[in-house]
Computed example of a mutant assay.
Amino acid sequence: MTGRPANKLMGSLGGVALIFISLFSLLPKEVNAQTSDGSYQMYGFNLVGSLPMMNKNGQSISSGDLQTPDGKMSLKIPLGTIIHNAAGKNQEFISAILVQNPASVPSQQQSVIAYEIGTPGATFNPTVGLAFNYSDAELPSNISESSLYIAQWNGSLWVRLASDVNTSFNTVSTTISSFTTYALIGGGSTVTTTPSATTTPPATTTTNPTTSPSTQASTSETSSSGGSSSSTMIFVIGGAAVLLIILLIAVTRKS
């Protein structure tokens, strides 16, 4: 095969190679390369800032200060924090996914913003700092700044965490010990405050006799973790590969 057909085939192969390189560059890198002593830097999905370095046991050997790109949520990971997944293995990445439709909050209250921090089930020991940032314009007219608090989703209802509201800087902060969905909530006081950073959150109690667990939560969340995003990307790349192979065969036959 010589001349123009050969050049045409080589051009097609070059185009296929470039497309594959571009597609694979889009895959999220969930785990960064380890050093000779087994330490690694955590990877952040939808998070920016300084990521902590971890030793081979999953304990931070440098602190981390992470924020979502929109600046609405931030995490502070102290030096010496052990981060393990639900299986007790090293948790090598952190993801933050905006929850568009969080589960229903208690009556007379309203969710301002919610993030799923993943992967769910991973734990911190000791605790890490979590903060939500808000603007006055974002708060509904019936919600006062003093009523704001951070709540943790325990799988069936929202558990209120002891929260510090700073109205001067428009921040609400707490400490957490596990990955799950967290929301900034405000409104009437119908949920008993629980200590922050409990590994297994207790069920909340209410002072409003008309409030039932079914009204507190059962709307499904629409977010997804970094792992499902990776699976979707791999599926797309697989489909693209099939189409590219068909195109290559067609070009070869014409040549």
Rank of each mutant, 00 (worst) to 15 (best):
N208C: 04
N142V: 12
N46Y: 10
T181G: 03
S230E: 13
Y40T: 00
P69Q: 06
T252A: 09
M53I: 09
S144W: 03
P126D: 05
N142H: 15
L98H: 08
G15A: 15
L13D: 02
S196P: 00
Y182V: 04
L79A: 01
S218I: 06
Q59M: 10
G227P: 02
T219L: 12
V242L: 15
V172M: 02
L27Q: 09
N101A: 10
F179G: 01
S74C: 02
G238W: 09
Q109C: 07
S196K: 09
L27T: 11
M54I: 06
M10V: 12
S177N: 14
T204S: 13
N55V: 09
S255I: 07
A162G: 10
T210I: 10
L130P: 08
A240Y: 05
I21L: 15
I249S: 05
T215I: 12
T200D: 14
T205G: 08
S74A: 12
N133F: 07
P213F: 09
G58F: 02
M53D: 06
F169D: 15
Q108P: 00
T198Y: 05
Q41C: 02
G71R: 04
V16T: 09
N85C: 00
F132L: 10
G187I: 08
N208H: 00
V31C: 04
Q100A: 13
I21K: 14
S25I: 05
G38I: 05
A6S: 13
L248I: 04
F169T: 15
F132T: 11
Q34M: 12
L130T: 07
T194H: 10
L26D: 08
P140D: 13
Y40N: 00
A96L: 05
F235I: 09
N125F: 11
I97Y: 10
L184T: 04
I237Y: 01
L26A: 10
N166P: 00
H84W: 10
L243V: 15
Y40S: 00
N208M: 04
T81L: 06
I176C: 06
R253I: 15
I150R: 01
S111W: 01
G15S: 15
G155A: 07
V236D: 05
S146T: 15
Q216V: 14
L248P: 02
G38F: 05
M42W: 05
T206H: 07
P106E: 13
G239A: 08
A162D: 14
Y182T: 03
L148G: 02
Y115Q: 03
L248Q: 14
T2A: 10
P78C: 07
I185C: 01
T190R: 14
L139E: 08
V105C: 05
S141R: 13
S104V: 06
F124S: 00
A131H: 03
Q91V: 01
N154P: 08
L51G: 00
T210H: 12
T207D: 08
T81P: 02
A162T: 12
S229T: 09
T167E: 08
T252C: 06
D37M: 11
S255T: 11
Q110M: 13
G227H: 13
P213M: 03
I185E: 03
W153I: 09
T175F: 10
S223H: 11
L243T: 12
Q34N: 12
Q216N: 12
Y134I: 04
S178H: 09
S95H: 09
L13A: 07
L26T: 11
T232G: 11
N57W: 04
